[in-house]
């Protein structure tokens, strides 16, 4: 068996550009992961559906719109409802400091600010998914 890490990168919300999401997507590909990119304006339902059909290990949500406190828990709930409770959920974008512990409490594995290095994201995924020897 040869397993590859599969990652869904989604850009929920109505805000316009997805440069950050694309940079992350490329960095993950260059680290040997298979990245499914879904494009702009994804709803929580679309994200969870794509995560199921693609059987991903990781869902990365790029959020700039400030809707994270409603959207992220909704994605988490839908993933759980679909039986994908083991999926690693990462959030990137502009998230107020005070909200980070709240998101983590709900099940988000890590939150990355706009200044985060792509290598941080890569390392976080690789370490979290490393099989214990």
């Amino acid at each position: 068996m040869e397993k590859k890490i599969r990652v869904l990168i989604a850009k929920p919300g109505l805000d316009g550009h997805d440069r950050g999401a694309k940079v992350i997507a490329r960095a993950l590909r260059d680290a040997g992961m298979e990245v499914i990119y879904t494009g702009l304006r994804q709803t929580a339902e679309m994200i969870a559906e794509a995560a199921l059909q693609e059987d991903v290990d990781v869902v990365g949500l790029s959020i700039l719109s400030g809707a994270h406190m409603t959207l992220v828990p909704k994605v988490l709930d839908l993933l759980n409802a679909n039986g994908q409770d083991n999926v690693l959920v990462l959030v990137g974008g502009i998230i107020p400091e005070a909200d980070i512990p709240l998101l983590k409490e709900k099940g988000v594995f890590e939150v990355f600010g706009p200044g985060a290095f792509t290598t941080e994201v890569v390392n976080t995924i690789q370490q979290a998914l490393a099989q214990p020897a």
């Binding site: 590859k4 997507a25 490329r26 993950l28 590909r29 260059d30 680290a31 040997g32 992961m33 298979e34 990245v35 499914i36 990119y37 879904t38 494009g39 304006r41 709803t43 339902e45 679309m46 559906e49 794509a50 059909q53 693609e54």
Partner: peptide, 24 residues
């Protein structure tokens, strides 16, 4: 790298939410 960027779903947005469709 052995990695891949799979972007076909971008064009298939309007098929979302239809239980008669499965995209892989």
């Amino acid at each position: 790298s052995g990695g891949a960027l799979l972007g076909d779903r971008i064009r298939m947005r309007e098929l979302a939410g239809d239980s008669g469709v499965f995209i892989r």
